[in-house]
């Protein structure tokens, strides 16, 4: 064991280093400005349309295909036999993976058909290609875009276990072959919602609370309304009128969101904490409602 002798390292940036840091800093500021002004959108859309299929491929596990085979170049008979067997084994494993992928696609398509039969919606199914690189934001990238008929404001739904297909996010921006969806748990997400109670409905706003230490809350509810707990919260289809941030919102009414877990009075209104039917951060495959069928 040695003692730290506090050796001073020549780690301070040189003049050239400082210049480089300043240049990169300015470059990043320029990128941010270009992004905010929307001038970077065409380039970003094009790059994302290249990246999205790769990301989707990586997420579905297809990249393991490359690990299956290994070339053998020895001329000895035994080695040749081993090579032949390995090749056969590789092909079989590849077929098995393809079979599993087909089976998964088949299961997802059957789920889609079932949802479309139960609801008037027309859906486009897609794998989630990427998620945020940290927990700071709640957005996902989907492997479909303008070419598939996707537009900003469309509702993204998913299904988990025995739960009904439920709203997980809203399309925020679209590229040629990729789309960015803002999850309903993000603090900037706001969706009009309603709770069926007796003869009427109770309206409110479902706001994301992830960055504030929770999931989703139903806010702006009349404080006179009594809740028993467990009531189903569905979309109201009023986002286009209520949320100024989502001028093109196309979320249809009656898309399930979750159930009321607890309620508390705050000021002149009530706030209900919602347990979502689907945890948006765990979604692997989602559907976009491209036509509400109204």
């Amino acid at each position: 064991m040695m003692r730290n002798r506090q050796i001073k390292l020549p780690n301070a940036p040189s003049y050239r280093g400082v210049t480089l840091i300043v240049v990169i800093f300015l470059l990043i500021i320029l990128l941010l400005a270009l992004d905010r002004s929307g001038m970077a959108d065409p380039v970003r859309g094009q790059v994302q349309s290249w990246i999205a299929p790769v990301l989707a491929w990586m997420r579905t596990g297809s990249f393991s295909l490359g690990q299956v085979s290994s070339p053998i170049t020895d001329v000895a008979t035994l080695r040749a036999e081993i090579a032949a067997l390995q090749s056969e084994n590789s092909q079989l494993k590849e077929r098995l993976i393809q079979f599993e992928v087909t089976q998964l696609e088949n299961r997802r398509l059957r789920e889609q058909v079932r949802i479309e039969q139960e609801r008037p919606w027309q859906l486009v199914g897609t794998a989630v290609s990427a998620m945020t690189p940290d927990s700071g934001r709640q957005i996902i990238m989907l492997a479909v875009g303008i070419e598939d008929g996707i537009q900003p404001g469309m509702a993204v739904i998913a299904q988990e276990g025995g739960q009904p297909p439920a709203l997980v996010g809203v399309i925020e921006s679209v590229g040629p072959q990729s789309a960015i969806a803002l999850l309903i748990t993000d603090f900037s997400s706001s969706v009009s919602a309603q709770v069926y109670q007796g003869e009427g409905t109770i309206a409110g706003l479902v706001n994301g609370r992830w960055q504030r230490g929770s999931r989703i809350w139903l806010e702006e509810i009349d404080r006179e309304v009594a809740f028993a707990g467990g009531e189903t919260v569905v979309t109201a289809g009023l986002s286009a009128r209520l949320a100024t941030d989502l001028p093109r919102a196309a979320i249809p009414a009656n898309v399930p969101i979750g159930t009321i877990e607890s309620v508390r009075i705050e000021g002149r209104s009530q706030i209900a904490e919602i347990r979502p039917y689907v945890d948006p951060s765990r979604v692997q495959y989602a559907w976009i409602i491209v036509n509400a069928g109204d």
Binding site: N11, P13, S14, R16, G17, L20, I21, I24, L27, I28, I29, L30, L31, L32, L34, D35, R36, A40, R44, V47, Q48, I51, L55, A130, M131, T132, P133, R137, I139, I140, M141, S173, S178, I180
Partner: peptide, 25 residues
Amino acid sequence: EPDVAVRWALYSGIGLDLCSGAMLG
């Protein structure tokens, strides 16, 4: 040196922004 880390930060950051759909930069 810090300037190497700064270059890596630029490449990695742009990569993350493009892959995740976050604000570029």
